[in-house]
Amino acid sequence: MVSESDVAHIAILADIGIGDDELAEFTGQFNAILEYFDLLDQVEESGRSGTGTTNIFRDDEIAPSLPLDGVLENAGESEAGYIRAPKVM
């Protein structure tokens, strides 16, 4: 069972933004879904390793970067080639 405060903590960890009005609804849904996920408790761990390809590389060869316009085009605000982000201090 997760509580509303657990869900609020997860929301912060995920930087998702959750309103007080949504907490009860999300918590209820999470508990239903997590209860279903508990099925996995019956799965035994085998220590098998995965299969598939390994060692997929590229060579250390320079490829063109994007033109600055292309970089800034989708960014909201920019300043002297920098992209603007919210303050961190």
């Binding site: 300043e79 002297a80 080639g81 920098y82 992209i83 603007r84 982000a85 919210p86 303050k87 961190v88």
Partner: peptide
């Protein structure tokens, strides 16, 4: 990151 000051404190950040 480059921190930009505004009105006495850091108002926003610039990213390279």
């Amino acid at each position: 990151l480059v921190h930009r000051a505004g009105a006495g404190r850091v108002a926003y950040t610039l990213v390279d």
